[in-house]
Design a protein around this nucleic acid. Structure first.
Length: 196
DNA sequence: GACCAGATTGTCT
DNA sequence: GACAATCTGGTCA
């Protein structure tokens, strides 16, 4: 059972923490790939200068202002895409960037898509996990509550929740504005995060 | 391990 | 026209 809309209909930092340990699944004609979420970042609305939503709604960021539990996928650095989950009630404009997964299903397919067989290098970054799971830009706005791209609770895959004391909060990666806010979250000790 | 240049293009000012 | 929520492959150690 995918996580319900109510899961996403909360404070963005709460969702960013709660997503750790949950499983992102993508079913495609080539097969299924899935990974355990081990690193996230919260992007807030008008108080967060690093957020795409900081200056309000634009053609690019409209998905951020859409329904909670949908995807916001954007193009970055001329060649990569990043996958986010929309949070808060519709119209607020916040989201959680999924930065790293621990691969748990479809490793061979991930290896083929990524061109490497090093497990730690398959999904250890926002651009990498989009490639490894075969997420496409047309899936911007797609619901994560149903359909081929979903997020499941840990229990659905026989996994335990990530306890609060195993969650580390640090500065976000790759930004210049509002760079000091502790809005990046990852599982302590996990080998599949994007960086120390 | 750390640091750095280069790739490549949509987006917003 | 400047910049960007990144990654890879190179150098040096």
């Amino acid at each position: 059972m995918p996580l319900p809309e109510a899961f996403y209909h909360r404070r963005t930092t709460v969702v960013a923490r709660a997503l750790l340990g949950c499983v992102l699944v993508h079913d495609t004609p080539e097969g299924r790939t899935a990974g355990r979420i081990v690193e996230t970042e919260a992007y807030l609305s008008t108080k967060d200068a690093a957020s795409h939503a900081f200056r309000g709604r634009t053609p690019r960021n409209v998905a951020m202002f859409g329904h909670p539990g949908r995807a916001y996928i954007y193009f970055i650095y001329g060649m990569y895409y990043c996958f986010n989950v929309v949070t808060e009630p519709e119209g607020v404009g916040e989201a959680v960037l999924v930065r790293a997964l621990e691969p748990i299903e479809g490793l061979a397919l991930m290896q083929k898509r990524r061109g490497t067989d090093v497990a730690r290098n398959l999904c250890s970054g926002p651009g990498k996990l989009v490639l490894a799971l075969g997420v496409r830009p047309e899936q911007n706005h797609a619901s994560l509550l149903e359909g081929p791209l979903r997020i499941e609770a840990p229990e659905a895959f026989g996994l335990a929740k990530v306890s609060a004391r195993k969650i580390v909060a640090t500065k976000r990666v790759g930004i210049t504005l509002a760079a000091d806010l502790p809005l990046r979250f990852y599982e302590r000790g996990n080998l599949f995060i994007s960086r120390k």
